[in-house]
């Protein structure tokens, strides 16, 4: 290949030193432009974007953590409210029960006292009836005794008969 006429282009173009100034000139320009683009615009911008993103992520994580604790708190409050309501309900039920029991007791007591009063009255009346029956029995006995005595021909005054009948009647009562 070195037989070609144009000597500069036969060998390695990399070793053609005539092109070096040209390459280096444009290379320096390119590198400087890239450096300026990167250091002035691109890198600060990307750096801030990355920093912002990591900041946002951290913040979001913190917010999520906070919301989580809040949710836990809310749940706790809810549980507390539920327990309170339950306790309140139990209290109300207890109170209602107690009230009803009290009313019932009053009613029972009233009924008892009424019953007792009625019983007393009945007993009184029974006693009255009994007393009146005894009186009647004594009168009949007295009359019968007086009649029997008169029929047997003996005379006795009414006081003696009374005493005798009373004694018998009370003995009979006792028996």
């Amino acid at each position: 290949m070195e037989t070609e006429p144009n000597g500069a282009e036969t060998g390695m173009p990399q070793l053609d030193f005539a092109t070096f100034p040209n390459q280096l000139f444009w290379l320096v320009i390119a590198l400087v432009v890239i450096y300026l683009i990167l250091s002035r615009v691109a890198l600060p911008r990307i750096g801030t974007v990355l920093a912002e993103r990591s900041g946002t992520i951290t913040n979001d994580l913190a917010a999520a953590e906070e919301l989580k604790t809040k949710a836990a708190e809310a749940e706790k409050a809810y549980e507390q409210a539920l327990a309170d309501a339950r306790a309140e309900a139990n209290k109300i039920i207890d109170r209602a029960k107690a009230e009803m029991r009290a009313e019932l007791d009053v009613a029972i007591a009233k009924a008892d006292s009424e019953i007792a009063a009625k019983q007393e009255e009945s007993e009184k009346r029974i006693a009255e009836i009994r007393a009146s029956a005894q009186d009647t029995v004594q009168e009949v006995a007295r009359d019968t005794t007086a009649a029997v005595l008169s029929a047997m021909g003996s005379e006795a005054d009414s006081a003696t008969i009374d005493a005798a009948v009373k004694a018998r009647a009370s003995r009979g009562d006792a028996a």
Binding site: T19, N22, Q23, W26, L27, A30, I34
Partner: peptide, 23 residues
């Protein structure tokens, strides 16, 4: 040294690509 050559063209394209990607 100042001649615009294919080196210039492809260096310019390199700069352009860098600008496109990074900026």
């Amino acid at each position: 040294w100042y001649t615009p050559t294919n080196v210039t063209l492809w260096l310019a394209l390199t700069v352009l690509s860098v600008a496109l990607l990074m900026v």
